[in-house]
Design a protein around this nucleic acid. Structure first.
Lengths: 143, 143
DNA sequence: CTCGCTGTAACCGAAGCTGTTACAGCGAGG
DNA sequence: CCTCGCTGTAACAGCTTCGGTTACAGCGAG
């Protein structure tokens, strides 16, 4: 599958919101976020909409509308972001049912389900080791 | 992203080859493998071709042709299979270059490259904990 | 030389993602 | 109550990938 840039977009938006907040601009419009990522504002709204459903950001309507972080940048991990924006599981089982007459075909799906579950847990654990504050810090110290 | 079933197909084929070998049938044709997975033989040949390039299976031509395991089932881990069949990286960076005037846009790509590299390493390490022999064992003990 | 199987190219339809346009909805401020 | 700016979402286009299928050249044991 074409690798997905959803996590990148969402993390970029959150890091930018975190920096703006630190600079005294706690609320940004989707146009302002889109200008940093250099993409269409609608894509930003779709991504931030996912993050809002997970309470990672808050939105304000009416005059002076825009987006702000839902909690401290150090309290938002990449695992939270991954869960908010990433849809289907990492690995899929067979599209068509295997031949159940074959012992492997019969038993492999529950076996792989368990293994794939462990792998996804490990993936989340690794993502949880990094927060938005970490990403912002590493971005700002780039050469 | 639409989840990929390539890993599932390849692992199923290898587990089936391992069981057939144990039963005294060390060489199987792509039609025989496809019959267990219940998919088209061409897809099996494509998948086994990837595995052959990684020396995980061997192929024989001419009369009595077919596929056999390249080494012991306990010496083939899911990480080996993942590397053999899975193409692009898990997460993509931005499709278009971020705004380099913005400090986040300037530094986020190297930051994410490092983080994503760590996550993929962790994924491989978790996959490496399971071998084809393990998958076969877990499949055969299914209820 | 024959025959069965491999290896690969070409193509199809379905699905997903990015990107764009368009428009209804909301609410603070006048 | 109206205006105005921004959000939220639907609809659509273009691209890519994937699974699936057909077709055919290549190989080698017998």
């Amino acid at each position: 599958m074409a690798a997905n840039s959803r996590l990148t977009i969402a993390v970029h938006a959150l890091a930018w919101l975190a920096l703006a907040h630190r600079r005294g601009r706690p609320v940004l419009t989707s146009d302002e976020v889109a200008a940093s990522i250099n993409i269409n504002p609608v894509i930003v709204r779709r991504s931030l909409g996912d993050l809002r459903r997970a309470s990672l950001v808050e939105v304000r309507h009416g005059t002076g509308a825009g987006w702000s972080l839902g909690r401290e940048p150090s309290a938002i991990t990449l695992s939270d972001v991954y869960d908010a924006v990433e849809g289907p599981p990492l690995f899929a089982l067979h599209h068509t049912e295997p031949n159940l007459e074959c012992p492997v075909g019969y038993g492999i799906r529950p076996a792989l389900t368990g293994i794939y579950g462990d792998v996804e847990s490990s993936l989340r654990a690794e993502l949880a080791r990094t927060s938005i504050a970490d990403v912002l810090h590493r971005s700002l110290e780039a050469p």
